[in-house]
């Protein structure tokens, strides 16, 4: 399971303040704690700073990489910001994200083409957000084929079928889960990933829904997640679900997590 630690995102007020103050210590502390708690990538997002994103994103990459060896997940739609960040980045970064929206697709494809970057392929198009399994598959198909034709190997592609809230349509949970299964079946070697907290939008006790949905998605094959690695219950859910889905040899990760006291609260 690939865990992308989501905390360093400027849409969170404390992070925006830390970025504006150039508070390296604070950013590094959050990066370190995410890495220690299982993050394989540290998401960096400076999207709220219109006009200053390039500088802030560069600063975030160097600041994070001074503290941890975990690579960054560069979270931006702006090709200039991404290229500037990649220039500084050590190791192989992940890109969050390309989509089938024409402008975004055309801006980002030249950046990932022929590289060994990991890339999140978000199932969204200019027609809007997909609601059904088939709509997700249609977008995934065009995205994956486009990336492969541009010499991005399947195993570097993380398809995000886009979680939509069940509060607005009770079918949205299953439409997503079936998309995970079908995408993995159609493109052998490709990965799937998602930020899934949107599933519980508009409902009470969101943490409960998020955790159970994570377990259900892992049961369908989900092998990547954009989450808060400091959320102990969510991480425990992931360890347990991976073991239950038969993806944890000799239950090794689960037992390690147990010995590190990550499974009790």
């Amino acid at each position: 399971m690939i865990i992308v630690g989501e905390l360093i995102n400027a849409s969170r007020k404390a992070i925006a303040a830390a970025i504006e103050d150039r508070d390296a210590e604070k950013i590094q502390e959050i990066a370190r704690r995410q890495a220690e708690n299982g993050a394989n990538y540290i998401d960096v997002n400076a999207g709220v700073f219109v006009g200053r994103e390039v500088d802030y994103l560069k600063w975030l990459v160097t600041t994070v990489q001074d503290a941890v060896e975990t690579p960054c997940c560069i979270d931006s739609p702006d090709p200039a910001a991404i290229e500037a960040a990649l220039e500084l980045h050590q190791g192989t970064a992940m890109l969050n994200s390309i989509s089938l929206e024409k402008e975004r697709y055309e801006a980002l494809m030249p950046i990932v083409a022929g590289t060994d970057l990991k890339v999140i392929a978000l199932c969204m198009s200019d027609e809007g957000m997909p609601e059904t399994t088939d709509a997700r598959l249609g977008i995934a198909d065009r995205l994956v084929n486009g990336l492969v034709q541009n010499n991005v190997p399947l195993e570097n592609i993380y398809v995000d079928p886009l979680v939509q809230p069940i509060s607005t349509n009770q079918e949205f949970g299953m439409a997503f889960l079936e998309a995970i299964e079908k995408i993995l079946a159609r493109f052998a070697g490709v990965h799937t990933i998602c930020g899934l907290s949107n599933i519980s939008y508009g409902l009470p006790e969101r943490a409960l829904l998020n955790q159970i949905f994570m377990a259900m998605a892992i049961g369908r094959g989900l092998d990547g997640a954009i989450v808060d690695p400091l959320n102990r219950r969510m991480m425990a859910t992931i360890y347990a679900a991976e073991a239950l889905a038969g993806r944890d040899e000799y239950c090794g990760q689960y037992l390690t997590a147990y010995r590190q006291e990550k499974l009790s609260f």
Partner: peptide, 10 residues
């Protein structure tokens, strides 16, 4: 006020 939720509103 948070007494009703989106599905109920719908």
């Amino acid at each position: 006020t948070g007494e009703m939720f989106i599905p109920e509103v719908l």
